[in-house]
């Protein structure tokens, strides 16, 4: 009996050891980023001894980055774009998903197949004709192009549909008998129930839009239209050895993501489980 207990303790120790190593590997690049963001260029790579916070932290990095590149413009563009895309994505895809999950209508299967078929199709396959088309529509170098590109994904519809299918039909039936319209059922019954799924979709959409690089690279050419990702990349290629400033800009670009993630993560695993993204 004793040896079994010892074995259990040994397993526990190994599990914690693996997890701690994992956590360290995950967190080191972030700690390095923060540490380097308050160092001068001479201090960044100093290894013996390595100091996490230098004697004289160079806080000016966080001030200078705003003037070296038009960071405020980039931030504004990215914030506007991300909020509009996330909002449209949540609204239109949960709207469509309600119909696919709870209503009976003609061509339902065909329409849904159109969505499913495109999920496995990488955007990169049709990005070129899409660009030509949007350019024809006069959307080249406009933030609006990015909205059109990202706001109507098949993934969102698919995910929300899976979630709504988990909600019992009786709930809708009862409301219909009470004379509630389909719109009423959607807004008063389904939406309040979809917090886990909507939180999950918010995290995915927000992170993807905020971090997107190739889309903005193709469409947003003038400096006043660029997003944070493009701006940071531009800065890096111009001042590749200004490590302190690059890291300060990187830290700033991560803050909104962390905030959004920490707000919505409460529902996250539950949301993934309920939406059946797991297959």
């Amino acid at each position: 009996m004793k040896s079994k207990r010892n074995k259990e303790i040994a397993t526990k120790i190994i599990v914690y050891l693996i997890l701690i190593i994992m956590a360290v590997l995950m967190i080191i690049p972030f700690l390095w980023m923060i540490s380097a963001s308050i160092k001068s260029d001479r201090e960044v790579f100093k290894m013996n001894p390595f100091v996490f916070i230098p004697e004289k932290p160079k806080w000016t990095n966080y001030r200078d980055i705003w003037t070296k590149i038009p960071l405020a413009v980039f931030v504004r563009n990215t914030v506007v774009l991300t909020i509009v895309v996330t909002f449209l994505q949540l609204l239109t895809s949960s709207f469509a998903a309600y119909s696919f999950a709870k209503l009976k209508f003609k061509y339902k299967k065909t329409l849904f197949m159109a969505y499913i078929a495109t999920i496995a199709m990488p955007w990169q396959v049709y990005m070129v004709p899409q660009f030509i088309m949007l350019r024809k529509m006069g959307l080249n170098d406009k933030l609006m192009a990015m909205v059109c590109l990202q706001a109507f994904s098949a993934f969102g519809v698919f995910m929300m549909k899976q979630f709504y299918e988990g909600i019992p039909d009786e709930l809708c039936e009862a409301a219909r008998i009470d004379g509630m319209s389909e719109y009423g059922i959607y807004f008063k019954i389904m939406l309040p129930l979809s917090k886990p799924a909507l939180s999950t979709l918010t995290i995915f959409t927000f992170v993807n839009t905020w971090n997107d690089y190739l889309g903005p690279l193709i469409y947003l050419r003038s400096e006043s239209k660029k997003t944070i990702q493009l701006g940071l990349k531009m800065f890096i290629s111009q001042y590749s050895s200004d490590y302190g400033l690059i890291m300060a800009g990187s830290v700033l670009s991560l803050i909104p993501l962390m905030v959004v993630f920490l707000i919505f993560q409460k529902y996250f695993v539950e949301g993934v489980a309920a939406t059946g993204i797991k297959g």
Partner: peptide
């Protein structure tokens, strides 16, 4: 996963 590629 949430960290932006350019930064990380």
């Amino acid at each position: 996963y949430i960290a932006s590629l350019v930064a990380i």
